[in-house]
């Protein structure tokens, strides 16, 4: 089992022999000196100083980076896309989403959430809610400065969660267009097939 013999012995990986006692340490000193001197004029991407002065400068966010979820509305915050179906509430691994369907005066459920809370202190940014939502209404945000003095402030009510579609376009341009295109196609298909039973909920191919 011991494989010491079975592989070809590569001389190349024999550790270099040391000319005299202090040589390895001197090479180490040379490396740190070189880094010290070149840190003054080397450009950030080939080994220079790449620290970003955080509050003043900020690293550009990657498009796909996911932080905390938010709800999208098309025109006005009163008409969010979310229909309070509760699929995301069921699929959330850490159970941090709480949805309440709105009812009109005589108890008939409306297709609108009365209350939609996400507990940011529990959420682990896994992005499952975005994947399972059939109505493309919940997406992962880039905004990460959400520190609060009290855990209650992290329980975000619906008003704080709702953000406009234009904001969605600003942070994730590619995904936003793909989803808008899908919604437009589904709408035309539905208009074209109005006499027939409305098409199943639009499949949004994730790009």
């Amino acid at each position: 089992m011991s494989g010491a013999g079975c592989g070809k012995e590569y001389g190349k990986f024999v550790k270099k022999s040391v000319p005299f006692f202090g040589w390895g340490v001197l090479c180490g000193l040379w490396v740190t000196l070189k880094n010290f001197i070149t840190s003054y004029f080397r450009k950030p991407d080939e080994g220079g100083i790449f620290t970003v002065q955080y509050p003043e400068e900020c690293l550009p966010d990657f498009e796909a980076s996911r932080n905390f979820p938010f709800l999208v509305y098309d025109e006005t915050p009163e008409k969010p896309r979310c229909v309070a179906c509760g699929i995301c509430e069921r699929e959330c691994p850490v159970k941090c989403i709480h949805v309440l369907m709105a009812k009109d005066e005589n108890g008939k459920p409306l297709r609108r959430p009365a209350a939609f809370d996400i507990d940011y202190s529990l959420c682990m940014n896994c992005g499952n809610c975005e994947e399972v939502c059939p109505f493309n209404s919940i997406f992962m945000d880039h905004e990460h400065k959400i520190a609060a003095y009290d855990r209650k402030d992290l329980m975000r009510p619906m008003q704080k969660l709702l953000k406009s579609n234009s904001y969605f376009h600003s942070i994730r341009p590619r995904d936003a267009e793909a989803i808008d295109r899908a919604i437009k196609e589904a709408a035309e298909k539905k208009k074209a097939a109005v006499p027939a039973k409305p098409a199943p909920s639009p499949e949004a191919p994730k790009s």
Binding site: G7, E9, F13, V14, K15, V18, F21, G24
Partner: peptide, 23 residues
């Protein structure tokens, strides 16, 4: 004298190591 004392302190001089790249 530098080299004599390095020879005397055998433990300080690093051993040469070989590594096998098996498949």
């Amino acid at each position: 004298s530098f080299f004599v004392f390095v020879k005397l302190n055998k433990t300080f001089v690093p051993e040469k190591r070989t590594y096998v790249l098996a498949d």
